[in-house]
Design a protein around this nucleic acid. Structure first.
Lengths: 251, 251
DNA sequence: CGGCGGCTTGAGGTTGGTCAAGGCATGTGG
DNA sequence: CCACATGCCTTGACCAACCTCAAGCCGCCG
């Protein structure tokens, strides 16, 4: 645990995200820097939040990935979102008496430990930040909504196409993917738990995309060979992943 | 279009919701009253938002229901959420250059017309309100996430059980349902588009719940006969629908 | 009274889950 | 440096679930 250089905060993925909606002033940045002082490490496979327990602390992701999921009595698992740098772990889990989802790191992560009360105080003191967070969570909701469509009404092949493009786009946005390829952080079983398919069927669908020349894979490295065709197949529009400014310059 | 009596604002479903997270002060209420001045009507089946168009105005629901959905090229429809009094139409649609979902009224509605810029200004001026909205949207996200689980991993019968309990609970929260029954605002086809089933299969699953004595239906009126059994079947925990205070009283 | 939207039921076919076995790479300990 | 274990990917066979299509029915509203 150590302090940030004050300047370095500007490069933090959370700040980048918030800044895309609204331009934060010096006071906002200073307040955020205060929040981000306590850094902690989470090793791969570490449970950060376990469903049913109470948490009063958020973890803001600086680097690494995690999954937010729920285990059902049947033994099935549904992954609800893939948490990336700049995302807030404990949102919404911490806002309830008992966490409604679990969160597990899927690789080594660097996190910031933020007591919920400090977070609430910051929101109440800094309307700019609170407003940026409203926009931030609207986008979060849009991503969730798109997943409902995936799971509910798209065909397996379409789901997979959509999922791959979403991963590519989100990873590119945080500078973790090249123009047409990225490293898939999930196993095929994990992919199945995101899009609601069995692992063997994920395998079959991946094979089909490869066979048709839409993608290529070597190990966990996914390359999009025919983005246009994938977009049509998965009805993917990057719109819902873009960030909107809260308002134009006031007159 | 006419002005609210200033006192009546306290009973507005949006204010009730926000107040559950944080206690709004006089200034907050006055500012919100300003937002809610322009009232408009939407008739049943009216499209309020059409995917792909640009909107710079929110509609806050005073009464009535609407659905937020997307039409796929295959002709299938996925309903992403059921919008109830106190909800904000255009959230997240308006936050993008082009709306990512459509919204249609499913009964006559009373709405408040709120330009997006006014909404943004209010957030920026009133940290209390902005913070309450952050909590509000966290809950929204949790509802979406629960729908992902429904569509992705629950069995059809379980989905239906979960859906019925969610409707009952949400309707009770706004005073539109009795202890164990409510009026279903959707047709069976509509239910199918929420939980990702075909209309005939919804019918069969409903029949099964009736046959097993878990529910009863007369017309659109649904009565929950065995809540405990339904909760186990659908793994339903009302937690995710409850509202949390932002923080305890500060010392 | 006639039409229409929504509910109900049935038959049949495909999809995708389950189960199971085998292969391959990676890592670990002897 | 090899033997073995482990985790993940791959493939196949089988079967149940759920979708599609279709027809008939009911109740409501014009």
């Amino acid at each position: 645990m150590w302090k940030h250089a004050v300047g370095s905060i500007r490069n933090h993925p959370l700040i980048t995200k918030l800044n895309a909606s609204i331009s934060l002033d010096q006071g906002d940045l200073a307040a955020l820097a205060g929040l981000l002082e306590r850094r902690v490490i989470a090793k791969k496979a570490k449970d950060i939040i376990v469903e049913g327990y109470e948490y009063k602390v958020l973890h803001i992701v600086e680097s690494g990935f995690a999954i937010r999921y729920k285990l059902l009595h049947s033994g099935k698992r549904q992954i609800v979102s893939i948490i990336m740098p700049g995302d807030i772990i404990g949102f919404p889990a911490c806002f309830y008496e008992h966490a409604v989802f679990s969160v597990t790191a899927i690789c080594d992560m660097r996190l910031h430990h933020v007591p919920l009360d400090d977070f609430a105080d910051l929101c109440l003191a800094r309307a700019n930040v609170a407003t940026a967070l409203v926009w931030f969570s609207a986008r979060e909701a849009a991503i969730y909504a798109e997943h409902i469509i995936d799971a509910g009404r798209r065909e397996p092949l379409e789901r997979l196409a959509h999922f791959l493009l979403e991963m590519l786009t989100r990873l590119q946005a945080i500078g973790s993917a090249s123009k047409d390829s990225f490293s898939m952080p999930l196993s095929q079983e994990g992919i199945g738990d995101v899009i609601g398919l069995s692992a063997p069927h994920v395998n079959r669908m991946l094979a089909e995309l490869k066979r048709d020349g839409l993608i290529a894979m070597t190990g966990h490295e996914v390359t999009i060979l025919d983005r246009a065709a994938l977009q049509i197949l998965g009805e993917f529009h990057a719109t819902y992943l873009t960030r909107m400014p809260i308002r134009g310059p006031k007159l």
